[in-house]
Amino acid sequence: MTTHVGSLVRPAAILEMIIDDLVGIPLDREAFDALVARCVKDVVARQAEVGIDIPSDGEFSKPDFHNYVVKRLGGLEVQTTQRRSIGATGMYYPKLAEEFPGFMQQYGDMYRTMWLPEELSREKIAQALKVAVPLTTVTRPITYEGQDELKRDLDNFAAALAPHDFADAFVPAATPSRSDSFSDEVYSSEEQYLYALADAMAVEYKAIVDAGYLVQLDLGLPSRNQVLHGKTNPSIEDLRRASEMHVEAYNHALRDIPTDRVRYHLCWGSMNTPHTTDVPLTEFVEMILKINAKYYVLEGANPRHEHEWMVWKDVKLPDDKVLVPGMVSHQTNVVEHPELVSWRIQNYASVVGRERVVAGTDCGFSQGWTMQRVHEEVQWAKLKALADGAALATKALWG
């Protein structure tokens, strides 16, 4: 079986409208919705064509995989005079910038735009990057108010899936993890705010599952080099405490959803960077297994983590869980050979069993409009190689 992590490269026409909206050109909502509906049909058909068994809608309606919920959550007020700059990677990865200053500076100057379609206005792109992500403040208790947008997404996906015979389908959803500012008058602690977000996002998760789809949550556990609650060099214990609190909140949000309809995605950050400060899987694998999910979507093609299939020789995968390791990378335009994909699949099958492996990708190919990781042509070649490699592994494992 084959799948991926969710986001796919957005068509230029969708990107153009997203960018126009960011720079202040009024969005024709009816035209945008019609465009997204057509493009979702096309991208689902293309996934069927290349051999993906469990597709997504590509997240085409969303400007990114996480901050789209700003428009869906009541209680968040956008600070129009303050924006969070989308700039060099060093602001998010200070330890990595310290270790590789020249690389991070050069990479930071181009990684946001290097694979955006050539027909898009570079001037508008530059303006949109300056607008960046708005800072938000919690002004009242958090509620979920995105039912209309969510229904539109689910209906588009259903229409796109109808002509095809997929094994299943999934919809990624933002996790209840945000760094908004709030006063004691609204929430007395970070934990209280986290659980309020969990209660609100539970509405979206349940609607996705009730519509017949798998829901996928992402918990990108912090790397040692990232900023964590103001700490530029958090200890492993800092990381563990923060992550454990989030795991508990995620389970709270998933409390009314059958475990076998939940996918959990873990990555070490999707950047095409050295990854020398990534926390090894062995240091938190027992903790993530506490998440109430059946499918664990993990990086397996990233050369910093490819060897970690061997972790499962020593760590028993619970009987009710399935691994979905990345067999192709979203970080490089090198297209993996199907024989390599087959070999990687067989490595995992050798330690957890052939029935408990689904072939996936390391992360999304374009987690946001500024996060396109490869050229669109390469994306489809990689997904075709994934399907071809899975076919080879099936023959090898079943005969």
Rank of each mutant, 00 (worst) to 15 (best):
H4N: 12
V5S: 15
V5Q: 11
G6T: 04
S7N: 12
L8W: 06
A13T: 14
L15N: 06
D28N: 15
D28Q: 02
D28S: 06
D28R: 00
R29L: 11
R29K: 13
E30H: 05
L35C: 07
V36R: 00
C39F: 00
V44N: 00
R46N: 09
E49A: 14
V50S: 12
G51S: 09
I54Y: 01
I54E: 03
G58E: 01
E59S: 06
F60Y: 15
P63T: 08
K71E: 13
K71S: 13
G75T: 02
Q79C: 08
Q82A: 10
R83D: 05
I86Y: 11
Y93E: 12
Y93K: 03
L96K: 07
F100N: 04
Q105C: 01
Q105H: 09
Y107I: 03
Y111S: 07
R112W: 12
T113Q: 07
L116A: 10
P117Q: 10
E118P: 06
E118I: 06
Q127H: 05
V131I: 15
V131K: 15
A132M: 11
T136C: 15
T137A: 12
P141I: 03
G146F: 02
D148C: 00
E149Y: 02
L150T: 02
K151Q: 06
D153I: 00
F157L: 00
A159R: 01
L161V: 01
D165L: 03
F166Q: 02
A167T: 12
A173Q: 10
R178N: 05
D180S: 14
S181F: 10
S181L: 12
F182C: 04
S183E: 08
S183T: 14
E185Y: 06
S189C: 06
Y193R: 15
M201C: 09
M201N: 06
Y205S: 10
Y205H: 13
V209K: 09
L214A: 01
V215W: 00
Q216Y: 03
K231S: 06
E237K: 07
E248Y: 08
H252E: 08
L254H: 09
L254M: 11
R255V: 09
D256I: 01
T259W: 00
V262L: 07
Y264D: 04
H265D: 04
N272A: 15
T273M: 07
T277W: 03
F284T: 08
V285P: 03
V285A: 14
M287F: 03
I288W: 01
Y295R: 07
Y296L: 15
Y296W: 10
Y296P: 08
N302F: 02
H307E: 12
W309F: 08
V315L: 13
V315P: 08
L317K: 13
V322W: 04
L323A: 11
M327F: 09
S329W: 04
Q331Y: 04
T332Y: 04
V334N: 14
V334P: 02
E336L: 04
R344A: 12
Q346C: 15
N347F: 01
G353N: 13
E355P: 05
Q367Y: 02
T370K: 03
Q372Y: 04
E376S: 14
K382D: 10
D388H: 09
T394L: 05
T394W: 05
K395Y: 00
L397Q: 12
